[in-house]
Design a protein around this nucleic acid. Structure first.
Lengths: 170, 170
DNA sequence: GATGAAAGCAGATCGCC
DNA sequence: GGCGATCTGCTTTCATC
C-alpha cells in the first residue's frame, strides 16, 4: 500500500479528479457490484489490467466504497415498513448525536436522517407487523428521553435508485 | 437451470424456508457483497462447494438479490441532500403510481416513499448546492400536476444500516 | 497510463458419500 | 444435503511500451 498514490489522485479539496472512464466504472459498479473486471473493461473500452488498476485506485482514494447485497425483506419475516417523524425536545449537539448513534443500533432501523423543518428526525424502520410497529414506537422512540413527539407513517410503496447522478465540480 | 429447484425451497406462502446457515450467508453478503465463497464458507462452517450451492439457490429463489457498490457522493459533486415532504391533491391509484414512476426517473432522486399520515410522499434527493435544490424543488416537484404542497427538509446527518433484521415466521 | 502474458487463485461442476 | 477433486476462467501482477 502506498499513501502517495492516493495523494496523486487528489486535488486541494481532497477530492480525486475523475475522468469519463472512472465515472463509467463507478456507474457500472453502483448498478451491479458483481460485474467482473473483464465485463467492466469491455464496457469502458480498456484492457482488464488497466481497468483493474483504475478500480484499485478508486477504492484506495475512498471514492469507491463497499458493496452490499440486497435481500428480500419478506424472506426475513418483514411484513411492514414505516417512517417515524420525530420532534426532539432538546437540540444540543451531544443529545442529538447521541440520539442518532443510539437509534442506528436498533435492529429495526434501516436509516435515520437528521433534518431541518417541522421534524428533527426521519427514521425508516422495518417490522414484522402492526403490533411489532406499535411496540417499537413505544419502546424505542416515544419513551426515549429527548423525544417530544413521534408521528408514524406506514410505507405503502418504496422506490430506490442505486446510481448517484454526476454533477462535476466547477 | 431448473425451476423445480426453486419450488422445492418454497412453502405455500411463496417464501423459502431459511435455516441458520442461509441466514448467516445473507447477513455476510449484506455487510460485504465482495466476500469470496471461500471466506463465507469459513464463517458458516461449510465446504466452499456446499456454500456455493446455497448461494446459488438463494439467488434463484429471489431471496438474495443484486449487489450495489457505494460511492462517495462528494466525489460526484453532491454537496447537499434533502427530503421533500409532499402532499398530493389527487389520490387516485393511477395518479399516485404515475407520480412515483415519474419521480424515480429524476436523476437527483435517491428514494421515494408513498406513506400514510400528514404527507403522501417522502422523497430523498441529492443535489450540488442550495441553488440546485431550489431549482429541483420548483422544476420537478412544486410545479408538477397533482402536487398540493412541498416541504423541504435539509439533511444534516444520515445513517444507514445495510443488514436487515431477521424476524422468522411463526 | 495502458497493454498482453504469466502466475495464482476463485468460481463452478461433478461423482460420491 | 454436504463434500473434495477437478477444470475452467478470472483476478492480479509485472515487464514493456
Amino acid at each position: 500500500m502506498s499513501g502517495d498514490l492516493t495523494n496523486e489522485l487528489r486535488n486541494q479539496s481532497g477530492i480525486p479528479e475523475l475522468d469519463r472512464t472512472d465515472l463509467g466504472i463507478l456507474r457500472l459498479l453502483q448498478k451491479d457490484a458483481r460485474l467482473s473486471v473483464k465485463e467492466i473493461a469491455a464496457h469502458v473500452g480498456l484492457a482488464p489490467s488497466t481497468t483493474h488498476e483504475r478500480i484499485r485506485r478508486l477504492r484506495e482514494a475512498g471514492v469507491l466504497g463497499d458493496a452490499h447485497a440486497e435481500v428480500d425483506p419478506k424472506a426475513l419475516g418483514i411484513g411492514l415498513e414505516a417512517l417515524f417523524m420525530i420532534e426532539l425536545s432538546k437540540h444540543k449537539r451531544g443529545t442529538v448525536d447521541r440520539f442518532m448513534d443510539d437509534i442506528v443500533q436498533v435492529p429495526e432501523v434501516r436509516s435515520a436522517f437528521l433534518v431541518t423543518g417541522r421534524y428533527d428526525l426521519v427514521v425508516h424502520v422495518v417490522v414484522r407487523d402492526t403490533r411489532h410497529l406499535k411496540d417499537l414506537a413505544l419502546d424505542q422512540f416515544t419513551s426515549r428521553p429527548g423525544t417530544a413527539r413521534v408521528e408514524t407513517s406506514i410505507i405503502f410503496d418504496a422506490r430506490q435508485r442505486h446510481e448517484l447522478p454526476v454533477f462535476g465540480r466547477s
